[in-house]
Design a protein around this nucleic acid. Structure first.
Length: 572
RNA sequence: GUCUUCGUAGCUCAGCUGGUAGAGCAAUUGACUCUUAAUCAAUGGGUCGGGAGUUCGAGCCUCCCCGAGGACACCA
């Protein structure tokens, strides 16, 4: 038994021993047969009271109301909670009432996982309840659970600390079961997209996460090293260039749900690892892809929320097709009244200044247009909107516009003021692609850490010939945020990236023993707040001697009292 | 990275102008045969995030550090 534990944790460990003494294994190996769930009972029992008369159910104790010879627990399983009624004479039918009086009343705690057999009835207060005939301890909980209580939509003692919720997501899921809904919707979102793409017979594929060159996006990568090959590898920032190689290889439709990694800032919209779905379809163009995205996302909205309309913060967003479409120039004109489509770089810079957009001399034409759009339009685009025809400088993998010089065939869908996807008519001209990479290299040499690197093998693939192809990348986390009305990306990731928890520096038991302290006293010393040998040696021996023996008395420890000589000996 | 707010019992929080650390729930003991924020009585539980400084005296003031949230920057 460790004295570093809290009072409640010590008590629970003692309870564990009591159970073992009573011949009960608190962590049994046998399976426990479950034949129904809380959701099934709550749904079907009101319509037919003859159902659920011989049930076996398992769950975690999340509430207790213990009385004399009858008691109520609430147990929680995956879909929900239900009340369970325990009556002394049912649990302990014979003379020996210890199963009810001791095991049930004293050795069960909030957080324990139990199995229950019995039948369903309705209490005098009108609540659907399981009348327990027997119960089995399936797992003993050694840490006290935060106790969230609620009535009439009012909540007391909610477990809300975001740090703890994100670090201990398991606890968050137990105590705030409604957040399960967000993650269930996220999975449904992925499944809906997968079904949509599979219906069209596109092939779901897997491509390398460890890449010798990182490509397909503009971002800083995570770097790692392979020992056997003695080479640097990068965690992928995108999988675009690999999927296009598969299009070259003759698959006409490929997609991948891809965990990508970007070594950049974190915010409520950015986690270092995140999920994108990328899709490439041969013989299509970006107009075709817009329709594909509309149909897919509309379907997701209906699958998750039963409607094309989704409440997001203050706004109701309607994904019903068709979505609004603006070229980038049209969008800027719409929101600022200024037509920049014919402007040269000098003129654009003046316009940006007039609009109070910070500019510097390194910005080229494309960057200026992008800045003007970002500052004046993006926030205002709440309903899903396609923005298309981007300046060529920002898009080294997109095909040149079929009619307009200086633009590429690219679109983004913007929704709730944020980009949710990015798509092109893919560049398949290998000569043009090489030139675009080369101009990225120039940017890199000028110190742009996010410029793309030149991938010779990818160019070789293009030289063999890639069919005209439409490509899409859609941010699954961002889409999940919108579809679940979540404020932060951390709310749609089970385990968002966090700084490591700090560990207080402590000396090991061995180190304490090496200066002559017996193992019995080490926990007492730690309990007194002395975690290191250095700290111990700074103590006054007389005071320490008194304090430790005081603890011994207080905690009724069954070890001999210390002598002052022993304490002095440690100090040497 | 910058600014800003926060960190007190297992959980949610209070703590006055710097003067002996508090409440509710949870826990322990007892009472109670349909309760539901169960109720009633009693009891125990604290490195006030960590460290330094100012002070006769610091949860409170100052500085540094750690962690978290928010905003901004960056990230098409």
């Amino acid at each position: 038994m460790s004295l570093e534990l809290s009072e409640q944790e010590i008590i629970r460990r003692e309870t564990l021993q009591e159970l073992r003494k009573a011949g009960i294994n608190p962590y049994p190996a046998e399976k426990f047969e479950v034949n129904c769930t809380t959701a099934e009972i709550l749904e079907k029992f009101p319509e037919d009271n003859s159902l659920f008369q011989d049930i076996s159910i398992a769950g975690r104790i999340v509430n207790r109301r213990i009385m004399g010879a009858a008691s109520f627990l609430e147990i929680q399983d995956t879909p929900g909670r239900i009340q369970v009624y325990f009556k002394r004479d049912d649990i302990s039918p014979g003379e020996d009432k210890s199963m009810y009086n001791n095991i049930f009343k004293k050795h069960l705690d909030l957080g324990d996982i139990i199995g229950v057999t019995g039948f369903v009835f309705i209490t005098q207060m009108g609540e659907i309840t399981i009348h327990a005939k027997s119960f089995t301890i399936l797992s003993k909980s050694l840490k006290p659970l935060p106790m969230v209580r609620e009535k009439d939509d009012k909540v007391w003692d909610a477990f809300t600390d975001p740090e703890q919720r994100y670090r201990m997501r398991y606890l968050d899921l137990i105590v705030n079961p409604e957040i399960k809904e967000v993650f269930i919707k996220r999975t449904k979102l992925v499944n809906t997209i997968r079904e949509f793409l599979n219906e069209r017979e596109y092939l779901e594929v897997e491509t390398p996460i460890l890449q010798p060159l990182y490509g397909g996006a503009a971002a800083r990568p995570f770097k790692t090293h392979h020992n056997t090959l003695d080479m640097n590898l990068y965690l992928r920032i995108a999988n675009e260039l690999y999927l296009k190689r598969l299009i070259v290889g003759g698959f006409d439709g490929v997609y991948e749900f891809s965990k990508d990694f970007r070594n950049e800032g974190m915010s409520r919209f950015h986690n270092p690892e995140f999920t994108q779905m990328e899709l490439y379809v041969a013989y299509k163009d970006y107009y075709w892809m817009m329709e594909c995205v509309e149909e897919m996302v509309e379907r997701v909205a209906i699958a998750l929320n039963g409607s094309t309309q989704v409440q997001v913060g203050e706004n109701i967003i309607d994904f019903k097709r068709p979505w609004k479409r603006y070229t980038m120039f049209e969008a800027i004109e719409h929101f600022t009244g200024i037509d920049i489509s014919k402007m040269d770089e000098v003129h654009l810079r003046e316009t940006a200044k007039k609009l109070n957009i910070p500019v510097d001399e390194t910005m080229g034409k494309g960057k200026l247009i992008d800045e003007i759009f970002g500052e004046t339009c993006e926030d205002k685009l709440i309903q899903p909107t396609f923005i298309y025809d981007y300046p060529i400088e920002m898009s080294p993998l997109a095909k040149k516009h079929r009619t307009t010089e200086g633009l590429v065939e690219r679109f983004e869908a913007v929704c709730n003021g944020k980009e949710i996807c990015n798509a092109y008519s893919e560049l398949n001209d290998p000569i043009d692609q090489r030139q675009r990479f080369e101009s990225q290299l120039v940017l890199g040499q000028r110190g742009d850490e996010e410029s793309m690197v030149l991938d010779e093998d990818f160019l070789r693939a293009l030289e063999y010939g890639m069919p005209p192809t439409a490509g899409l990348g859609i941010g699954i986390d961002r889409l999940a945020m919108i579809m679940t009305n979540s404020h932060s990306i951390q709310d749609v990731l089970f385990f968002p990236q966090m700084r490591p928890e700090k560990k207080a520096t402590t000396s090991s038991d061995e180190e304490f023993m090496s200066i002559g302290i017996s193992s019995d006293w080490i926990p007492v010393i730690r309990k007194a707040g002395i975690q290191t040998i250095e700290a111990l040696k700074k103590e006054n021996p007389n005071k320490l001697f008194n304090d430790l023996n005081g603890q011994r008395k207080k905690l009724k420890l069954d070890i001999p009292a210390l002598k002052i000589e022993e304490v002095s000996e440690w100090m040497k």
